[in-house]
Design a protein around this nucleic acid. Structure first.
Lengths: 153, 153
DNA sequence: CTCAAACCCATGATATTCCATAGATATCCA
DNA sequence: TGGATATCTATGGAATATCATGGGTTTGAG
């Protein structure tokens, strides 16, 4: 599974092109589709980014809901209905659609934030605030990484 | 599992390069990724260092949270979003990014402090104070290492 | 025909690799 | 034991490769 790490801030040019960080591209190198899947976050003013194979995993998890249930319908609509599949060009860039750029208020630069299996794309200033609130939440709630669940070793 | 021991103080050159202690490198020799992962400590003015395989383990555990849950989001942002993956060069050195150098106020030298499964990187002077307070805490509170689980608790 | 997307190439900055040296430690043989 | 040699480590600098970015050209859809 891909493991996206660290934060990289790259420039968005007039054409809406932005370089995907080289280390992220390395994580995608084994994928059948050379590119990323993006959709609007339901929580933040940012974009959620995934490798193609992980979208299949999300599909499986959605199967845990009853088919035609309201929850399944809402989630599937907000995720799959709005997702875009963006191929990498020869130089490792993607073209961000204008509506996604305006959704997360991107100006000159975009921050790619590694979050393990997925990543997010933020306006750099907005992400600084988000990073601070996330750290405070971890400290105040005493969040920790749980031990691996279940019977495996 | 890697076991980092003892404290080593090495020089940080103008490029931010610093040698990882040879004994630490020996612990990393079995890793698929030859390098370390660093991020800012939430507690001290120092850096936390891990082997790559340990980060993969953390990634798997985080995947047990519901996707898009607040806890998953906060943890992934503060851990993976701020982490950096630093490869060893041919001579066993890493390049510390400028923002991490300033975060823990490194000047001429950096101290690598082995802490078992992880290690920390300190300003040498700061660490001397930290070591004293840690020792006093252990003495005054009578802290001990618990028995291994499985026997009487 | 027109516009946007895909492709190609150039370039500066940055990161990575390579080599050289010196000090310390370990090894070996007389 | 003692001295010479070899090895490992840390460190400095230079050469090389990679990456992000800008601009241009071609393609293709409507």
């Amino acid at each position: 599974m891909a493991l996206f790490l660290s934060t990289f801030t790259n420039k968005v040019d007039q054409k809406g092109r932005v370089s995907v960080p080289a280390s992220f591209r390395a994580e995608l190198s084994e994928e059948s589709f050379q590119g990323v899947v993006l959709f609007r976050s339901n929580v933040h003013q940012c974009l959620e980014g995934f490798a193609w194979s992980y979208m299949q995993e999300i599909g499986k998890r959605l199967d845990n809901f009853d088919l035609f249930s309201a929850e399944q319908d809402d989630l599937a609509t907000s995720i799959f209905g709005t997702a875009v599949q963006l191929p990498l060009d020869g130089d490792g860039r993607i073209i961000l659609p204008a509506d996604l750029i305006s959704f997360c208020d991107l100006k000159e630069k975009a921050s790619f934030v590694g979050m393990g299996a997925k990543f997010q794309i933020w306006n750099p200033q907005s992400f600084e605030q988000r990073r601070d609130t996330a750290r405070q939440a971890v400290q105040s709630k005493g969040l920790t990484i749980p031990k691996s669940t279940g019977g495996e070793r």
